[in-house]
Nucleic acid binder design. Structure first.
Lengths: 191, 191
DNA sequence: TTTACAGGTGAACAGATGTTCACTATAATC
DNA sequence: GATTATAGTGAACATCTGTTCACCTGTAAA
């Protein structure tokens, strides 16, 4: 995406400081000399969808700008520049986390879920206090300790199934203690 | 983590608006009546590490507050409340993205990398313009189209290896067109 | 009982904030 | 050549900002 003149200065400031520059700060960033020039640019950027005004009348950067471009599929090849500009953008935190207060991150150890594509060293985003449904991956407390397994509930009967033939399906004797439901898996390749 | 009184009001505001409330806005949020009361709280929160003052002297929420709690491993069990308070916190965007301008997100179709735990429907974070190293997963353009493969470079000889026995290793005839290097894989279970 | 202190009020202040108005220079269009 | 946008200047404005000072009040320690 090609941004209008001076807008990148604003973005750099936001990334460094975490808030929008004031009009006078924008003067320093752009080399301009009148706050009125900044005001006009800001109005244009609002019309262009790069900025927004919230209910209090304060400027805010649109999430369309801060997010990542969301493209097509791998097999389809790399999109053309025109397609890139149309691409959706997204913010990873907003995208992956629904209930922030209840969301935690854990490191996976062990290979009990490897056939489901969850490998040792992966990170999992889990949500506590969520009711697991049939087929969910959960973090459960069983007699011997803690484990990640598929949760199955068919006709009132609950089972914990690993995604690895080395391990056996567990049928909890009494009640099952569900610590959290796995919402997402993240694997990072380059430190 | 247990926050001091009134601090949650501030956090809620930040999450809704994307910026810190002013002292007068804090009065509305807390029910207090003097900005001086807010000023004292802010100073305490800076000492507690919940807020910071940047070089310009403006208040900013510490990243320790906005991030996710980062806990131990699955096998070790759920941490005690005491451990939770000590836990590191992290921000997913900062954690996963190094070069924002060059980072894109793609949906994976096809099963050529399934033995590496990358499944159809997964999302991959890729970085363009990065030099691939031996063992990296890359998005490459080959004669027949686009594909995701392991990049191998041993003794000057380059090969593209799938992580699926159904497919064969590719030895590019002429130069290899690397579109991007895969930096992370993300799988989301609950829409 | 006295002292210290955390937590709050109320008012005043200098500086910063976005907005607005009148005006200028440059370039493109008719 | 005259006209019309576009992009910018410069100054003034009311309002909002965080800070500061003097003061009040209940609670807990000395």
């Amino acid at each position: 995406m090609i941004y209008p003149k001076y807008f990148l200065n604003l973005l750099n400031f936001v990334r460094r400081h975490g808030y929008l520059p004031s009009f006078r700060e924008m003067l320093l960033l752009t080399g301009l000399k009148s706050t009125n020039a900044i005001a006009k640019h800001f109005q244009n950027w609002v019309e262009a969808g790069l900025l927004e005004k919230d209910r209090a009348g304060k400027y805010v950067v649109s999430s369309a700008v801060t997010g990542l471009p969301m493209l097509g599929t791998v097999e389809a090849g790399w999109p053309s520049p025109a397609e890139e500009e149309l691409a959706d953008t997204m913010n990873l935190d907003e995208f992956l986390i629904h209930n922030k207060e209840a969301t935690y991150m854990l490191t996976v150890s062990g290979d009990s879920m490897i056939d489901a594509g969850v490998r040792p060293g992966d990170l999992v985003l889990v949500e506590r206090g969520r009711e697991p449904k049939d087929g969910d991956i959960i973090i459960a407390e069983i007699d011997s300790g803690w484990t990640m397994k598929f949760f199955h509930k068919r006709g009132g009967r609950v089972s914990l199934e690993p995604a690895n033939k080395k391990y056996q399906t567990i049928y909890p004797k009494d009640e099952l203690k569900v610590a959290a439901v796995v919402m997402a898996v993240i694997r990072k390749y380059h430190a």
